[in-house]
């Protein structure tokens, strides 16, 4: 990508040379702590994945089976052969990609306005955007549904928005993701040291040029954090998708996952296999974008 990312990460590296032995011991201690934190945090995830590989009768057991002793792929087979799995996967990908792309673009623009301009209505907008997030979703379901079902009757709009339309769900997700995204990006923009912008100005670039060339890479980590957030929100949302999407072919993965639970109990193995499969795209997405966080962007910009 841009030249900025070439620079290797420089963690808070001590500049003054210290006794290397002591340094190494300290580093080892930090690493050990890091590994412990990793294990504690990841355990429930591990438990999900391990369960996905256990045959059904091994799942409930009085002494925990730390490692699947009879690993099997049958849960994955069962899960992927449930009706509508591929439809659901496709729908989820569509919803998520649009929500991520649109929310990043719209939020960046709005955050730019809020962080770098003073204008009439700025404060009310900030307050509004905060307030939007405070309304409990459960209370909005009925009013939202009433509106969406009316949109179904509006010519022109009803191709995209309305009940049982992916577009409607996407629009609703955007309203939940956007406030957060705007806010976070604004925070990152405010965090950009002034000197950088100023130097850009001195360089004689236009305002817009300065924004794009200097700010965009600088808020890179913010964009990444925001996109992960948007991705996960849209990917994991259940109740809106369940209530607003009727046709089975249009439902998303979370709705599909819920079908593992019936009155007769939950089919744990396939559920965990399904959930493991559902986590994969998130991980892939994260691995694709995480370099943007890990690399010292600002350092590069200052030097460049």
């Amino acid at each position: 990508m841009s030249s900025v990312t070439q620079i290797a990460p420089t963690p808070v590296a001590p500049v003054v040379t210290r006794p290397t032995r002591r340094r190494r011991v300290r580093k080892a201690a930090w690493n050990l702590l890091g590994v412990i934190v990793f294990l504690v945090m990841v355990f429930p995830v591990y438990w999900m994945i391990a369960t996905a590989f256990k045959p059904g009768h091994d799942i409930l057991s009085y002494t925990p089976q730390w490692i699947p002793t009879h690993p099997t792929l049958s849960n994955f087979h069962d899960a992927t052969h449930m009706p509508f799995f591929w439809d659901a996967a496709k729908n989820s990908l569509i919803v998520v990609s649009i929500v991520v792309a649109l929310s990043l673009v719209l939020a960046f623009l709005a955050a730019l306005a809020l962080a770098k301009f003073r204008f009439y209505g700025r404060r009310p907008f900030i307050v509004l955007i905060l307030g939007v997030q405070m309304v409990p979703l459960a209370a909005l379901i009925i009013p939202l549904y009433i509106m969406m079902s009316r949109l179904n009757d509006v010519k022109g709009v009803n191709h995209v928005l309305g009940v049982d339309k992916l577009g409607g769900v996407i629009a609703m997700y955007l309203t939940f993701v956007l406030p957060f995204a705007v806010w976070t990006l604004r925070g990152f923009l405010l965090g950009v040291p002034k000197e950088l912008e100023e130097s850009a100005m001195v360089d004689g670039t236009t305002r817009f040029g300065a924004f794009v060339r200097i700010l965009l890479p600088l808020v890179g980590p913010g964009l990444v954090a925001t996109s992960i957030f948007a991705f996960i929100q849209a990917w994991n949302e259940f109740i809106i998708a369940y209530v607003f999407l009727h046709t089975p072919q249009k439902q998303t993965l979370m709705v599909w996952l819920a079908s593992f639970t019936t009155l007769r109990g939950t089919d744990w193995g396939p559920l965990m296999a399904g959930a493991t499969l559902c986590s994969l795209p998130v991980i892939v997405f994260f691995l694709l974008v995480q370099r943007r966080i890990a690399f010292g962007l600002t350092a590069g910009a200052v030097k460049g």
């Binding site: 934190v37 990793f38 990841v42 996952l257 959930a275 998130v282």
Partner: peptide
């Protein structure tokens, strides 16, 4: 802590964090 640990641990830990984050609430 992420700033203090070595690269491998950092990537493992961030990936772990994202794994946790990516778990659907219903499943978690």
């Amino acid at each position: 802590l992420l700033l203090q640990v070595s690269r491998v641990v950092r990537i493992a830990l961030t990936t772990g964090l994202v794994l946790v984050w990516s778990m659907p609430v219903i499943v978690a």
